[in-house]
């Protein structure tokens, strides 16, 4: 009887359910822009001062982390191609086995890596606009209806001028076969837009041997990155 009441939010008068007020679904607090000084709160070292003993940063790995070391790097562009230098990006990903370090991940036969949380944040450089993450390549994760998702990293982008944080996914160019079967990529009916979610594996490697992927984000206009309502 009551399953649809959550959709009643905002309806009044004759459209409201009769007597249906037991289940109250509140509105989410409104989002506001992170503003130009987001670094103060989320990356004070980038803002130019030292305050916390432990900073959350863009290096997700330690020497003990299992998996292939990779760097993801790129730039963020506005609607007329300007490189943005005040953006904060966070990523969240599974470990090399394809397991998220979170209790809701009950995939059998996969272990959490105690040396990998899978979360990081990076600022675009104030001069070059480049952001980087040093992490491991995630393994595939079970998706809905038993369909395996291609390896991917979830990204969240906030900045001055962005009123609600933008969600997207970073897939990998050397996973063409898995990408072709990925249910989320296939949901994008405009095939030419799917490539906006694929990070390109570069010829260049880091001195450490880590592979480098380039993932540029276009907020608006030609080649606009696919963003998700999740």
């Amino acid at each position: 009887m009551s399953g649809w009441r959550e959709h009643r939010l905002g309806l009044e008068g004759p459209l409201a359910a009769p007597g249906g007020s037991e289940l109250v679904v509140r509105r989410e607090t409104a989002s506001q822009t992170a503003g130009p000084y987001v670094h103060i709160g989320l990356a004070p070292d980038a803002a130019g001062f030292d305050i916390f003993e432990n900073n959350f940063g863009n290096v997700l790995v330690t020497d003990q982390t299992k998996g292939e070391r990779i760097r993801i790097e790129g730039r963020v562009f506005d609607g007329i191609g300007t490189v943005l230098k005040d953006v904060l990006i966070e990523i969240w990903q599974a470990n090399a086995e394809g397991k998220y370090a979170h209790p809701a991940d009950r995939q059998p036969g996969k272990a959490v890596d105690p040396h990998f949380r899978g979360w990081g944040r990076a600022c675009t450089d104030f001069e070059s606009g480049v952001y980087t993450f040093d992490t491991v390549k995630p393994g595939p994760v079970e998706g809905r209806n038993g369909r395996t998702m291609a390896p991917h990293v979830n990204a969240w982008i906030v900045a001055r001028g962005i009123n609600l944080g933008l969600n997207t996914r970073i897939y990998f160019s050397d996973e063409a076969e898995a990408n072709a079967k990925d249910a989320v990529l296939n949901l994008i009916e405009w095939e030419q837009r799917r490539k906006t979610l694929v990070a390109e594996r570069l010829e260049r490697k880091l001195d450490s041997g880590a592979a480098v992927y380039r993932f540029d984000i276009r907020l608006q206009g030609e080649g606009e990155t696919v963003f998700f309502d999740v």
């Binding site: 969240w92 998220y100 079970e142 998706g143 206009g221 963003f227 998700f228």
Partner: peptide, 20 residues
């Protein structure tokens, strides 16, 4: 200039969205 013009793609949630 920082607002996407195209509609976001709506996703049903997977482990990628419900974990953190």
């Amino acid at each position: 200039l920082r607002s996407p013009r195209l509609a976001p793609i709506s996703l049903q949630q997977s482990l990628s969205e419900v974990t953190a």
